[in-house]
Structures are given as C-alpha cells and as structure tokens.
Design a protein around this nucleic acid. Structure first.
Lengths: 113, 113
DNA sequence: TCCCTATGCCCTACAATGTAGAACATATTA
DNA sequence: TAATATGTTCTACATTGTAGGGCATAGGGA
C-alpha cells in the first residue's frame, strides 16, 4: 500500500465495470464489460489478478453465488464494490480530472497538433 | 511496448503537465505542476523516470536549454510533447471516459454509498 | 455411464509503471 | 574557492499490467 495510493488505470476500469454490473459482476462478465466498452482485448488472467488485489486492499468483496442453470459450468464468484473502493475510485478519477482542468483542451481534442 | 498500450496514470499526469507548461516544461517545473494541481507529494526521481520512458516511446522529446541567469544552477532539459504523445494521451483519457459513460454517476459523486 | 462441451475460476511468471532517495553537475555570489 | 541554488542522473525496489495454461463443475448426448 503506497503512501499516495492512486489506482492504476486497469484497476479503475475493473471497478467501473463492477459498478455498472451493479455488484453482480464476476470474472467473465467484468472481462466482457471492459472489452465492450473500451474496445480493448482483455484477458481473464488480468481481470482475476486485479480483482484479487482489489479485494486484498479491501476495495471489493466477493462471495460464491449459486450456480445458475444456464447450461452448466462452475459457480460464479460475485464481486461487490465496498465503500472504500468507491472512495478510492472517485479520488483517482478526480486527480486526473484536476490535472486536466483549465487546460487548453483544444490540443486534446480530435486531431489538434 | 504492450500491444494495447494505455498510459499509466502518472504518465498521464506528466504529459498533462507538459501540455500546460506549453512545451517549456522541465523536471522541476513538471514536478511542481503535478504537486500543485493534484495535491499529491511527487518526487523528482519519479518524474524523471517517467519522462525518460515517455521519451523512449517517442511521446516526448527533450533538448537542453541555455541556462537562464536566475541565480545559477544547471541548464534545464526542456521537454515537448510529440504528436504521438498527444494521441496516446487522448486515447488513454477517452478509454476511461468511455468506461464511465452511461454510468449511474450518483454512486460516484460526493459521499454516496 | 462416460465423454464432450460450455462456463468459470486459479496460478505462475514476467513486463511495465510507480516511487524513493542519494549522488552528481553547473552556475552564481561572496 | 567555498557555499548555495538549481537541476539532472542513477540505483533499487514496490506495485500494476498482461499472458496463458491448467483446474473444476454442470448439462447433454452417444
């Protein structure tokens, strides 16, 4: 735990996905959500590793859900975001925002050079 | 160079600082800019390491400026953001933005729980 | 019953980023 | 030429990011 703990970009994406999945997210669904929204290729390994780290920090909490009878398969491990996680996410988002504020955004838009 | 290169948070902060400093930024001024805007404690070592990495990736370019006669001291190494850097910055910022879009921001604002 | 397939999870290993702090360099002033 | 102000460079290590393979469990059909 660093002194100035800021979340990494991927941690932010995962947390945001969980919020959108309304605390019913699990590995695979988080992976899909991030891929769809951002257009990036995301591997499951990356998602689980991040989820574990977030849980170790107390930012999310997981529980094993009953297996839904969709087609079969293993039970899901559902994740929910804790208050501390939300707080940290907000803080991280706002830090970049603050840095961006008052900036000549012209240069940051479309094809400015 | 990862396949899906997204900039890290600190890289974004440094790049944003350079934009604000209008391509006249150098180690110390970037450090100060980030500290002032974000309120975080930032060390010079972190800034230079990041600046070097960004340069290696072709996102910024540096040149040694003539020493201004303020009080003495070493010549500054001035950095400017390259087009590729701007593009990458934009892309990174937008990725998080997209993930955030359409979200029930209520939970992300003030003290929502 | 036994496989095959669909879901989903866990683990290992390594690359890239983030962070700290000390050492080094250079110009000014006295 | 020593003291000081400004800036940069180097070393080392912690945290995050990413890839990929293997394990586990349930349904469906031969």
């Amino acid at each position: 735990m660093a002194k100035n703990d800021l979340l990494g970009v991927f941690e932010q994406l995962v947390l945001l996905a969980l919020v959108q999945l309304d605390d019913q997210g699990y590995g695979v669904s988080v992976c899909r959500a991030v891929e769809e929204r951002t257009g990036r290729k995301v591997t499951l390994g990356a998602v689980y590793a991040t989820l574990d780290r977030l849980e170790r920090k107390g930012y999310v909490r997981s529980r094993v859900g009953e297996p839904t009878a969709e087609r079969g398969g293993r039970a899901k491990r559902l994740f929910r975001v804790e208050a501390a996680g939300l707080k940290s996410l907000r803080h991280s988002l706002e830090t970049v925002e603050r840095m961006r504020a008052g900036m000549a955004l012209g240069r940051l838009r479309p094809e400015g050079a």
